[in-house]
């Protein structure tokens, strides 16, 4: 076998044309998933057993099944129902991109809410007692004490989850979306050169991953500035 460098140089720009879609999938479902995660977290710590129960079942189901199956259920499965096809959501669910974003959001929301919960549980109980003793309300304690400290504690695990989400966006190619992976698969089908195409794309993803890690490293250092004795 020989490695066709020209082919890589030719197809790399084509694949990078899908970068925008990959980025859109990552950012939109990342943000929506985070909002969902906060809602699930609030349900879990609400003290209302039925809210807690619903959130727990949700998290259990979405963490216990493959993301690919979730994507297929949303994209191929939901249109089975008349009600879905006639609902106001149909314009979104008719589009593969909308379906991919929905599935990725539902999936990452479940994982991130567990990560945030880990952060909340890691907050020193003594600090909350000090807040109570100073007369702070439950809401004030959550906003000014629990939330900022839990955010810092959860950040390393959260950055790993964002990287997982990036890798999951590649599955959008299975429902006809032309993200970077989707374009690569088309090129491979035409040229039958999997080595060149997939390896070079893998490197693109790795650079993206390293960039994300660097970004989160900066945020971690900023949020952790009060944990270091020396400035």
């Amino acid at each position: 076998m020989n490695f066709d460098l020209n082919l890589i140089l030719e197809s790399l720009p084509q694949m990078l044309a899908g970068f925008g879609i990959t980025l859109k999938l990552l950012v939109v479902s990342g943000i929506l998933g985070f909002i969902l995660a906060v809602l699930l977290l609030l349900m879990r710590i609400s003290g209302k057993f039925y809210l807690n129960w619903v959130a727990q079942v949700y998290i259990y189901v979405f963490r216990g099944t493959p993301i690919l199956v979730q994507i297929f259920i949303v994209y191929y499965g939901l249109p089975q129902f008349e009600a879905v096809r006639e609902s106001f959501l149909w314009p979104i669910l008719r589009e593969p991109t909308g379906c991919a974003i929905l599935a990725l959001t539902l999936n990452t929301g479940a994982y991130v809410s567990e990560i945030l919960r880990g952060g909340v549980l890691g907050v020193d109980k003594g600090l909350l007692e000090a807040g109570s003793a100073l007369g702070m309300s439950a809401r004030q304690k959550f906003i000014y004490l629990t939330a900022p400290i839990a955010t810092r504690l959860a950040l390393p695990a959260y950055s790993n989850d964002v990287i997982s989400l990036l890798k999951s966006t590649a599955l959008a190619s299975t429902i006809t979306i032309a993200d970077m992976t989707g374009i690569a698969r088309t090129i491979v089908a035409e040229t039958y050169a999997p080595y060149e195409i997939y390896t070079s794309l893998a490197i693109v993803y790795m650079i993206f991953t390293l960039g994300l890690q660097k970004l989160f490293g900066v945020i971690e250092r900023y949020l952790g500035r009060y944990t270091r004795r020396e400035e």
């Binding site: 003594g126 000090a130 003793a133 100073l134 007369g135 702070m136 000014y144 900022p148 400290i149 944990t227």
Partner: peptide, 28 residues
């Protein structure tokens, strides 16, 4: 009416010293 001082200080680690002293005054 009742203040409390703890064994482990329980200062808020993410706030400067002066902010530790201000926050409850402002909020409560």
């Amino acid at each position: 009416e009742v203040g409390m001082v703890f064994q482990n200080f329980n200062l808020f680690p993410h706030m400067s010293i002066v902010k530790n002293l201000m926050i409850a005054q402002q909020l409560v």
